[in-house]
C-alpha cells in the first residue's frame, strides 16, 4: 500500500475520532429535534418531523420515543385540523 494511501486513511480515522463523539450524527440529531419540538409543544413540527422519521426509520431503537411524541401530539386537536 503506497504511503499516500496510508496517510489518507489515517487522516480520515483521526478526524473521525475527533468528530463523531462531538457532533451528533444525523439520525440522533433528528430524534433530538423531535424530542425538542415535543417539549416545546410544537405539534405541527412533531407531526412533520415525526411522520418523516417513521416513514423511513420505523425499526430504529429511537422510533418508540418518536411514536410516543406523535401520540402526545395527537391529543392536540388544533394541530390535526386541515
Amino acid at each position: 500500500m503506497p504511503r499516500f494511501v496510508v496517510l489518507a486513511l489515517l487522516w480520515v480515522a483521526v478526524v473521525g475520532l475527533l468528530v463523531i463523539g462531538r457532533y451528533p450524527q444525523p439520525i440522533a440529531r433528528q430524534e433530538a429535534q423531535i424530542a425538542d419540538a415535543a417539549q416545546r409543544g410544537d405539534t405541527v413540527a412533531v407531526y412533520r418531523l415525526g411522520s418523516d422519521y417513521l416513514a423511513r426509520n420505523a425499526a430504529l431503537p429511537g422510533a418508540a420515543a418518536v411514536r410516543a411524541a406523535l401520540a402526545g401530539a395527537a391529543t392536540d386537536t388544533a394541530a390535526v385540523q386541515p
Binding site: 500500500m1 444525523p26 439520525i27 433528528q30 426509520n57 430504529l60
Partner: peptide, 27 residues
C-alpha cells in the same frame, strides 16, 4: 496483507457511513 487490510477499511468506511446516514433527510 496490505491489500486485505485496505479493503477491510474500505468496507468499514462505506458500511459505517451508510448506516449512520441511513434514512436521514435525503429523500
Amino acid at each position: 496483507r496490505a491489500f486485505q487490510l485496505f479493503h477491510l477499511l474500505v468496507l468499514l468506511v462505506f458500511a459505517g457511513t451508510g448506516l449512520r446516514f441511513a434514512g436521514f433527510s435525503v429523500i
